[in-house]
Write a protein that binds this DNA or RNA. Structure first.
Lengths: 207, 207, 207, 207
DNA sequence: AATGAATGAGGCTTCATTCAT
DNA sequence: CATGAATGAAGCCTCATTCAT
């Protein structure tokens, strides 16, 4: 029972996730078009062809990575929707916290960024991403607004806004960080606080 | 000086711009990585090798295209800053109008989108874009805020926000339109109005 | 000695033949170059690597399959040579029957077909096939002719023809069937009858 | 105007044919599956990628080669059908001469051989080959038979045979030569003479 | 005996770029 | 000025085969 032996066996089950993790790094670094299987393989510490034991094509890896990341996203979103009670300002602030965590620190923005640039080649995945991530997020925000209206904190007027508006600064921040952080770093926490304040001030001010 | 002579001469001078226009289309359609010189040449109605008479590499074309588009952007931004007088709500609304025009209908978002995805390959251009476009935009917004503070419309407090916050929905909209418009179309004018209202309501409400 | 035990033992001995049978199917379907060990393994219901317990290389499988099929061919050919008595027309007709059975319905043409196309890669097997199958067949036909000459049915002249000539339509038919049967089906029995008549008419007519 | 310059320009028009000639060699040597673009390129004295300027895929090269060879075949076949007058034995002998020339010395058998082995991957080409080559040959032979019947040389009976039967030894010979000539050389002229004699003796003997 | 895991060699194809006219 | 021809680098993918259990 050699060390390599153990390694091999342990790997068997872990491989798909290892590959996905390596792929995520590669995609984050290079985008989809510039990513290579060689790059993914090297990051995963395996041979190029080993990847094919688990995924059929580069596209399949990307799809798996996106779906993998989505699963956790759904849980988080559920968390937002089922949030404990509190006034609108608190609830919204908590929701935004979750979203910044996922977008800026997590994986969600990696895919958003790649889809923005290369989504025309994979319309199915664009639809999937929209359906499973973005519209879920939108629904969570909408639920928050409705709750605010129900409690009388918010004007019915708020219902007519596009829900994306309230999240858009977060998406902006996620992209900005990856592009310009070296040149012009963004103070994420301050930005987030301003974001929350902007939205809540505006909404709560409505008659 | 025959007609063909004239045509030729006009061509000679027009070529670089024709190539840039063709390249812009190609980049918009395919992103940078997936764009090909063949595609650009076809759109420009010339041979692949002719491009090399004017630009040395694919990167050089991209850079030229970006610089070309920036020149006009600068003028627009100057327009925002030097805007005619009015109350903050009006001025901000006008500024946002210009930005949406450029970002959603114009070329600025093409490059933003590509840089988001592939900027790591061209850090110089990222810096250029940031310096020439984004920071100019930020300055224009900042000037507006300062003017509002000077007139007493806005609280001094507004100065401390990251100026990007106030524009971020526009950038979001520009990307969204290109990605999801088929699946989930965005009513740009409504979104823009909500955007303006959100920001101005929030800022004007501050004591 | 449990039931599984028995099964296993039977398997152990049967494996090589099962693999060969599976290989034959695969070769017939795909030719040698396009056949894959994966295909053979699937047809045999075993793992790819199990094949290596019995055969060292893909070529070795092919060789074993060819040798395996040859053993039975030899018996058949002996049958032709030792045929019961009768006039030449009858004897020849019976021989041709056997040959059509083997070539068109049996395995012999599978290998002929593959060797025709890919034999350059395996000159040893080409020699083997020629020696063990084709020249045996030729000898059987030659014996028939000699017997006809001995009985006075045939002219001595017949001895000078290339014996392959008398069998060549059968080989043609075997290949044709596999290539064109969907497009232009061949009535094998009618073709065979014409074949026999052509040869016997011609030979018996000689002075 | 350097030597290479001239070479280049002259090549331009000749390239497709050069590639086809090189490809034909490669296919003849290796079959389709084992042939490589590298092999074709080397034989043609060009780079691997140059091939792609003229043909899109390996399959396209094969198809072009087959169509190219077919064009000449059609002319030859027309020659058979329009043959000058003479008795059946002479006409048939001349037709068989043409067929042996094309099949044994020419290219027709190269494709027959490859299609036999790998035709299942390219059913369209199988149909094309059958339609353009084989059925044309069959028609020519049929015309010969009909003429013989018309002149009273042949029995009406001959009409009922499958025309392929009368040509099949030629196809056999073409394949045999490529497979076994080193081991067991075939005297083509003698075989051809026997072939002609066999068929004509048999047919002319019919009442 | 049997197998899942892993890999190296090798093939097809794309594309930016150079060459010579 | 413009271009057709040519190519080298690089990427994806398949498959026979080896390794360790």
């Amino acid at each position: 029972m050699t060390k390599t032996g153990k390694t091999r066996r342990r790997r068997k089950e872990a491989r798909p996730d290892e590959i996905l993790r390596a792929a995520l790094e590669e995609f984050d670094d290079k985008g989809f078009a510039h990513s290579t299987l060689a790059g993914i393989a090297t990051r995963a510490g395996i041979s190029r062809t080993t990847i094919y034991l688990y995924y059929d094509t580069k596209e399949a890896i990307f799809e798996a990575a996106i779906r993998n990341s989505v699963e956790r996203a759904i849980d988080d979103v559920a968390g937002i929707a089922n949030a404990a009670k509190g006034d609108f300002r608190t609830l919204f602030s908590n929701a935004i916290d979750v979203i910044y965590d996922r977008l800026v620190k997590g994986n969600a923005a990696i895919f958003f960024r790649i889809l923005v640039a290369e989504g025309h080649l994979m319309p199915d995945l664009v639809g999937f991403y929209h359906r499973e991530i973005l519209s879920k997020g939108e629904m969570a925000i909408r639920a928050l607004i409705e709750r605010g209206i129900a409690t009388g904190e918010l004007s019915e007027d708020c219902r007519s806004d596009d829900m994306h508006l309230f999240v858009s600064p977060a998406i902006f921040a996620a992209l900005w960080v990856r592009l310009f952080n070296r040149i012009d770093p963004l103070d994420i926490d301050a930005f987030k606080a301003s974001h929350v304040r902007l939205v809540t001030d505006a909404l709560l001010a409505r008659p």
